[in-house]
Design a protein around this nucleic acid. Structure first.
Lengths: 198, 198, 198, 198
DNA sequence: GATGAATGAGGGTTCATTCAT
DNA sequence: TATGAATGAACCCTCATTCAT
């Protein structure tokens, strides 16, 4: 990597750290500079405006998201488990996805917070991430369908709902602390598969 | 209401509008003043610091949330429907909750965004709203249990999961636009009640 | 005293307290109002501008100073002591003047500090106080002259010098703390009367 | 001198000018900036708060005071005059000290005015200047003692009293204007050496 | 006569941005 | 390329002053 590219990456890395910690609007360019180990002036050699850093951060986040979140690995995983109980498979998926969330939580936090106030970003994120997600949902649910284990309902709604349940679980873990994390995962899977109705 | 109390409310109302629209950090006190129809100086007769406005907004939000979100009405509603199909009841609940979300979405947006950067607020919100929510979840799920229709699983996890599914639906509606909103609700209810498994 | 006159006095008294404590420029009209037990608006019924309070305070200070500092009592005192040793007389005078300083130190502090930044005040104070002082110096020193005990030198310079020595003593007492206050007074008198030269 | 050090000095110099002219509290940072020939923002690159400028000014004043007021030169002066009449020596000292006061009157004015409202400054000034002064007084008076011309009285009180007399002279010159300045100096010396008593 | 509420110009301070070196 | 210094518009906040009641 060229030296200049390295400097740019240092700035971006510092920005991600800070944006996720205190939000874009409350992060000072001086802080970024300090954390990146460069002078304040240098930042503006790489980004014309402070906002451009955010855009770069989000763009990168999107790229990372799409690449990492790509369902390809997942499909592989599922095939390998194909003989196993669907419950086990779902749990494996959850655990794997959780490690993904942990790894990229800063990116996700920034994306989620900042698209609220920036139409350009919002457009971008929706177009790329949501659509990506939608097609993946189809594929993954499709596996359950082929196995003859899933009902023939809107696959997108199903997967989205599943994610909603998991996110609430995660959210609670982050904000409150969960003592029975694993057990709660099992409950969520049970609900997703068989519902709450007797 | 006294005149001074009225002014305070005008400031709070304008602040809610702006904070939810552009975030606390990006809202200017002058904007608040203009939107509230008072002078900038007046704001600081009622709130020592800009941050105090946010705290007041969130405190008020919490109060509103607890009062309005209180499950009492809900229980009444459910009892009235007691002969009806559980599906109908859930749909009614969702519709009613949605109108609540629409009405207080600004408050919720502020709370959700700002507690990330303010430990005091976070503590406050968690202590009040989350606990309130937890006890209510218990009560509501309990009704289904008594009717002999719900499985005996962790009621909090069940309700939370349900809400997770609904929130994703909502979220999508807000960000993307859904053409089949009603139909999607039905699907969510179906998943919640009977799961995706054949 | 009429009620309105009383209110005015309350404002002036509070102002003297505050001006002497933190200076005119750093005193807030709201503080004055609170200390005086009136509303901020009321102040401006009695004084058009904040500066007018200062002017009133100083004017009053000057009046008090001239009345209280008037040498008449002093002359009487001296006559009564006329048979006594001049040393004793000087010491009596010093002690009496010190109690005056203690009593009116706040006024003096304000006058001294604020005439520096206000030409009108400076003019006023100099015209009244200094001239008053000059004529009094003449009279007091004249007594020593008549007794045949004082040299025939510029009486104003003599008295002023004496006061200079006493002020330094006082100044030190205020800022540092003197353990031998009385003894130092004696030394100062000795210097004033007989000089430091052998 | 580095450019940044130069800028800092420009700000300090402008501040001294303005603080002594209108007092700290009434001096605006914009005025300082204009007088220093820098932008208002620049000031806050060098001083976090306006008050810090005052503290820096006073600290510098103290340093200057101690260095310049140091009695070393004075002792040399006195030795050179050792054959001369004590009157001549005192007059030389006064004239030399007066030029010092003229040169540093702005510093002194600031110190004197502002320590009244700032405990930190007060402590600092007293600890450094007063103690410095005390030890010097001892040395200087000691010379007169060794020459066998001064009485064996508290040297600190003697010097302090002398300064008190001179300050009053100076004070009058500043506020009133003296026509007979030189003659008054002679009178003060006469009083200091031989007293007013016949 | 007195108040409490409101004002808005102006205060100190911040911070993204520029630029000479 | 990188920096440190400087900028100035805009921020939050203060406070003397006004005014309807």
């Amino acid at each position: 990597m060229k030296k200049s590219e390295l400097t740019k990456q240092k700035i971006l890395k510092a920005s991600i750290e800070l944006f996720s910690e205190k939000g874009f609007a409350s992060t000072r360019t001086l802080e970024i500079a300090k954390k990146a180990g460069v002078s304040e002036g240098t930042i503006f050699k790489y980004f014309e405006k402070k906002k451009d850093i955010l855009h770069a951060v989000v763009s990168e986040s999107i790229d990372v998201f799409i690449k990492e979140f790509a369902v390809s690995d997942l499909k592989e995983t599922i095939k390998n488990f194909s003989k196993k109980d669907i419950k086990i498979i779902l749990k494996e998926i959850i655990m794997e996805r959780l490690s993904f969330f942990n790894k990229y939580s800063k990116y996700l936090k920034i994306i989620f917070n900042e698209i609220q106030y920036d139409e350009i970003l919002k457009e971008k994120v929706i177009k790329s991430i949501f659509n990506e997600f939608k097609s993946n949902a189809n594929e993954v649910y499709g596996i359950g369908l082929k196995r003859g284990e899933f009902k023939n309902i809107d696959s997108y709604v199903a997967v989205r709902s599943f994610i909603g349940m998991i996110l609430m679980l995660l959210f609670q873990k982050l904000y409150l602390k969960s003592e029975n994390f694993e057990k709660e995962i099992d409950t969520v899977i049970e609900i997703f598969l068989n519902g709450v109705k007797i």
